[in-house]
Design a protein around this nucleic acid. Structure first.
Lengths: 145, 145
DNA sequence: ATAATAAAAGATATTTTTATCTTCTATTAT
DNA sequence: ATAATAGAAGATAAAAATATCTTTTATTAT
């Protein structure tokens, strides 16, 4: 497995895709999202339903419905998606799995991991959901394969 | 879950513990290791058997047997343990789970993740299994709780 | 040689993650 | 109103990770 869970990987790819495809105010359906980011449709549906409930993304039912992002959502930091899906553990938990690891009671790698986690967090806090729309349009970055 | 799997967390904690407890040439049994690092005994046994087969740690059966580390093992980088247990994916795989992500075919986060992964890797390559023995003896770092 | 010890190995079980399928409900165009 | 559409929700299932228990094998002290 990678840094994030499969669930989280799908969520981030989907959110980037929705951002690009709905920048003009339109909506995009779950089938098209799943195909475009190469994820299992029904599994992704659950993930997006959860993100929708939490207000990270928007959705409308019925004909011409689908998922989309409003301006506020487009401006959100990517870290919000990770927090919503995987929880913020990756930004906070001990690298060796100790529940009470802290500067007062550190594991051997406490400071080293603090540094790595903080870099990861600030990186994800400084990326917005909508910021790759241009690159995705140009095809200079990809969301499948 | 954290950065690493539970399996990997147990492995690293165990290896640090074995390093400290066998620096004098003695050996330490699986029961004592499991208790001392707060891990399930039989599960940890499998992990250590695997590390032993791969030559990352050493073991001897029978009375006064147990696990220990020779000088070469004490000097190994911690990254060898992670590679052995979780595979090196954490140092190499795409943050968004794309199989073919590369500088030629990058995901939106390719460069950012490259940076984070490289930092993690070089951190783990520059830590040796035996380097915390002093701190563990002093109790300034811990392996449980 | 024998008994005691401790790792190795095998079988099984539980939990979590990932995935699929079906039914229900809300929305929109007609 | 009605039919079509598409997300929401619920029930199941498959796979992977985590955990436990039992039996076997190798080693050592006696």
């Amino acid at each position: 497995m990678g840094i994030f869970s499969k669930t989280c990987e799908y969520a981030v790819r989907a959110v980037f895709f929705i951002a690009q495809r709905t920048a003009d105010g339109s909506r995009v359906g779950i089938k098209e999202i799943a195909t475009s980011i190469d994820s299992p449709e029904h599994f992704l549906a659950k993930i997006l339903q959860d993100l929708s409930k939490r207000g990270i993304i928007q959705s409308v039912k019925g004909p011409h419905g689908g998922f989309y992002l409003d301006d506020q959502s487009l401006a959100r930091p990517l870290s919000d998606v990770i927090e919503a899906v995987d929880g913020g553990g990756i930004f906070r938990d001990c690298g060796l799995g100790l529940k009470e690891c802290s500067s007062k009671n550190p594991c051997p790698l406490h400071n080293d991991f603090l540094d790595v986690r903080n870099r990861l967090q600030s990186m994800l806090e400084n990326i917005t959901i909508g910021q790759f729309n241009g690159d995705l349009n140009l095809g200079t970055v990809v969301l499948k394969r």
